[in-house]
């Protein structure tokens, strides 16, 4: 139940403000243009972006007209369903073992922390987990991951700072394969998606994974910070173009940030959210549930 409480607390702020705002604008009765203008502000204000917001509003407006909506509850259900439709259009990544997950993203989104929590998550499911310290660039990143490996009591493969990331990844996968690991979680250095040389380096790592362990169920997850605005769309696009993305890990949902940017991302690119991070503790990560997410934010 700890999980649940955390998610709830994490998203409570979001929920409070959104439904408070909704009831404020609903209090005036009629579903006028002003009402929809206010709704637009609410959705844009949760980082859903101009275009997706417009699409949602058009959809909701049409449905409201069709079914003669009178109460706030009826309206909320329609709004939720509209957003849910988008969220569920993401194609889920299947979890078969052995599985290797390459964790990628821009700087400071919480890649290393997410890996620590994922290690714990799979460990609790009785999987054999190994971490690979592929971030050889950021100062002390390896030590940070070692700390997480200790906390989750899982194995880790590392080399010295400054060594070629691809070679650490090669070592890690070779070792994981030999030791029959179920889950390999590969950390990478944060990189801005527009830095071509760094994206080339990532492609190299990607090729190494493919070659070193061709049979493994290989997934690439991008980590997104819930406080990020529309730039998250650009991040997903670039990383997707470089190596292909199978899923999103949405972090830092324990603040007041809404993480609403995943809605336009899924709307546009149909990449599913896999995990959400709702706190700093090792247990503060859970699989994404679209319905729960919508219920929690509206």
């Amino acid at each position: 139940m700890g999980f649940f409480k955390n998610l709830f607390n994490g998203l409570k702020k979001t929920k409070e403000t959104l439904s408070k705002k909704l009831s404020m604008i609903f209090g005036r009765g009629e579903l006028t243009d002003d009402f929809f203008d206010d709704l637009e502000a609410i959705l844009i204000g949760s980082d859903m972006g101009v275009q997706t917001t417009e699409e949602i509003i058009d959809d909701v407006r049409a449905k409201c007209k069709k079914s003669h909506i009178k109460t706030q509850n009826e309206f909320t259900e329609i709004l939720k369903q509209s957003i849910l439709d988008i969220l569920e259009s993401g194609v889920k990544a299947e979890e078969e073992y052995p599985m290797a997950v390459l964790v990628i993203g821009v700087n400071g989104v919480g890649k290393t922390t997410s890996i620590g929590k994922m290690a714990n998550y799979y460990k609790q499911q009785k999987k054999e987990v190994m971490l690979v310290a592929g971030d050889t660039f950021r100062a002390a990143a390896t030590n940070q991951l070692v700390e997480w490996a200790n906390r989750a009591k899982v194995k880790i493969v590392k080399q010295n700072e400054g060594t070629d990331s691809a070679s650490v990844v090669f070592d890690g996968l070779t070792s994981a394969k030999a030791k029959n690991m179920d889950v390999v979680l590969i950390d990478t250095a944060g990189r801005l998606h527009v830095k071509e040389n760094l994206m080339e380096e990532l492609k190299k790592i990607d090729r190494v994974v493919d070659k070193t362990w061709a049979e493994v169920n290989y997934k690439k997850y991008i980590v997104l910070d819930a406080t990020t605005g529309q730039n998250a769309i650009s991040q997903v696009k670039y990383f997707n173009e470089a190596v292909g993305i199978d899923g999103i890990i949405l972090t830092k949902l324990d603040g007041t940030a809404k993480g609403g940017v995943v809605i336009p991302i899924i709307n546009e690119l149909h990449v599913p959210v896999v995990f959400i991070g709702v706190g700093e503790g090792i247990d503060d990560l859970r699989p994404f549930d679209a319905k729960e997410f919508v219920d929690a934010i509206i």
């Binding site: 910070d225 406080t227 605005g229 603040g255 007041t256």
Partner: peptide, 12 residues
Amino acid sequence: VDSMTGQEAVNV
């Protein structure tokens, strides 16, 4: 502040 921050920048 991360320059990529969205609407949340105001609250923070």
